[in-house]
């Protein structure tokens, strides 16, 4: 299986054909790759060099925490890569955005109203959790189409708080 893996604008062509070998931009390495603790923590022996890392998928990208540094990596297999090229690599920036609670908590304030236009970085909801007030911000410019909570509401993890168009 061939993958095009992109990180900081550099793309690596990575080929995985069996469990013991990997080819990175034409160079072959011996690997021993194991999952530790059931999830997200992995151990890699790459030509016997030992690496341990947290790897998690978040919003279409892989977050790799390695030796205290976080990398954001995009992995596409060949088929996806061809499709992406065929579509001209159009980035979709519009569409609806749903703000979800990143953790359970108590809504302290809702500084926006339905129909209000906001710019990227504006506070949409203030959520209290672990005795801290957390500002949940708009990820881009847009209009607040729906506010689903009010101050004083308790919310669950991943509950939709507001939507933006």
């Amino acid at each position: 299986m061939k993958y095009a893996t992109t990180l900081n604008d550099k793309t690596y062509i990575i080929e995985i054909n069996d469990d013991r070998h990997i080819v990175v931009d034409g160079v072959e390495y011996a690997i021993d790759f194991a999952s530790l603790a059931g999830q997200s923590l992995y151990s890699l022996l790459l030509d016997n060099e030992s690496y341990e890392s947290f790897v998690e998928e978040r919003e279409e990208a892989w977050q790799v925490l390695l030796r205290g540094v976080l990398y954001e990596v995009r992995v596409a297999d060949e088929r996806e890569e061809r499709l992406r090229k065929a579509s001209g690599g159009l980035a979709v920036s519009g569409g609806e955005f749903s703000l979800k609670a990143p953790m359970p908590g108590l809504v302290v304030a809702v500084p926006v109203a339905e129909g209000q236009t906001v710019v990227k970085g504006d506070n949409l909801i203030i959520l209290e959790s672990m005795k801290m007030q957390n500002e949940l911000k708009a990820p881009r410019d847009g209009t607040v189409s729906r506010v689903r909570v009010k101050a004083g509401d308790s919310v669950e993890h991943n509950q939709v708080l507001a939507t933006m168009a």
Partner: peptide, 25 residues
């Protein structure tokens, strides 16, 4: 800054992400 003065290993990160993506598929 969170990313100042660090020794970076982008290639290793790329390999790790690809291996995990492969494993998941």
């Amino acid at each position: 800054e969170m990313d100042e003065d660090r020794e970076l290993r982008p290639e290793i990160a790329a390999i790790l992400a690809t291996l995990v993506a492969h494993r998941e598929s």
